[in-house]
């Protein structure tokens, strides 16, 4: 490349002995600068979009979180006051504790079922496994809002499926929208929605395991259980970690399901039920956008730290 470009210098008349050197150097320098800028040029469309839709909102939120707007008195700069407030806000920590509980119980159940289903489909011993796979995945295609509405109606004791079961069989299924159980009811909806999605991640990872490993295992006389524990699960560890991280993020961002069910259980699901719901209420019914931004940023940081720790631990070679 550089040769072709520098060849013209050969044609310059040798009027002065030093002349050929200087243009060559200059040309080389312009070429170098141009290459540098060409790279940025290629990056520009991405960077523009990245800054606009990714960096700008975060910076704007941080900017918002440093102010305090009042109905009386307007806006004033308050530094980190909002953060101090958040760290001693029992409502915020209550919501965080609730989603943590949700995370600790719902995520293992959901991923366990997903793994089980993925292994079953992958085993090749299932009759009509394609159909099975599609039907397990189908709920993921149902929008979360619709799913919540649907389950909400089923949970109803006076009008829904639960009500009809109670009436028909004379059962007494407790109020699934009551304050004690409603978190579990939300967990059930989320599990229903995401088992298929996680199953697909696991299944895709299972499909790329080289069959030579299975053959070797068969020659060594390993049974199905041994194949699963010694080959399949270690081989899909990456997929397990990814699914876990997605689920952690999903749990901390819990919003749609409680927000929809709130209409059916207004007292059990408060406007501060999850951190996201809290941020939403702060901003849209309380007009406390500044504090809402603060809550959102803190939640983002907490989620990032936990997801990162899980990734570090999950990806460790000797884990």
């Amino acid at each position: 490349m550089s040769n072709t470009i520098t060849t013209p210098t050969a044609h310059t008349p040798p009027s002065s002995p030093g002349a050929p050197v200087t243009p060559r150097r200059r040309r080389q320098r312009t070429f170098a600068t141009r290459t540098r800028w060409t790279g940025w040029g290629f990056l520009a469309p991405f960077m523009a979009v990245f800054i606009l839709v990714f960096i700008a909102p975060i910076i704007y939120s941080i900017y918002l979180s440093l102010f305090h707007t009042q109905l009386v008195g307007g806006t004033s700069f308050v530094g980190f006051d909002n953060y101090v407030r958040a760290f001693s806000d029992p409502v915020f920590w209550g919501g965080l504790l609730r989603v943590s509980l949700f995370l600790a119980i719902q995520v293992p159940i959901m991923l366990g079922i997903s793994l089980l289903v993925a292994l079953a489909v992958d085993s090749g011993r299932l009759y009509g496994s394609d159909f099975f796979r599609i039907s397990i995945f189908l709920p993921y295609a149902v929008p979360a809002v619709v799913a919540s509405l649907m389950w909400g109606f089923m949970y109803g004791r006076r009008f829904g499926l639960v009500g009809q079961l109670n009436e028909f069989f004379g059962w007494d299924i407790p109020d699934l929208l009551g304050p004690q159980i409603v978190l579990a009811s939300i967990g059930n909806i989320v599990t229903w929605e995401f088992v298929g999605y996680n199953m697909l991640i696991f299944y895709a990872a299972l499909r790329v395991i080289p069959s030579s490993l299975y053959e070797a295992a068969a020659i060594d006389g390993a049974g199905q259980w041994r194949v699963i524990t010694a080959i399949k699960i270690p081989a899909i560890r990456g997929a397990l970690v990814v699914a876990t991280i997605f689920s952690i993020i999903g749990s901390f961002q819990l919003f749609n399901e409680p927000s929809i069910l709130q209409a059916l259980a207004p007292n059990a699901i408060t406007s501060t039920y999850t951190p996201n719901l809290y941020a939403y209420s702060l901003s849209f019914s309380g007009q406390q956008q500044n504090y809402s931004a603060t809550v959102a940023i803190i939640m983002g940081l907490i989620t990032m730290v936990i997801a990162y720790v899980v990734q570090l631990r999950g990806m460790r070679k000797d884990a």
């Binding site: 207004p266 007292n267 408060t270 406007s271 501060t272 209420s281 019914s285 309380g286 007009q287």
Partner: peptide, 8 residues
């Protein structure tokens, strides 16, 4: 706003 937090 007051009414919106009545249920809480």
């Amino acid at each position: 706003y007051a009414n919106s937090i009545f249920n809480d």
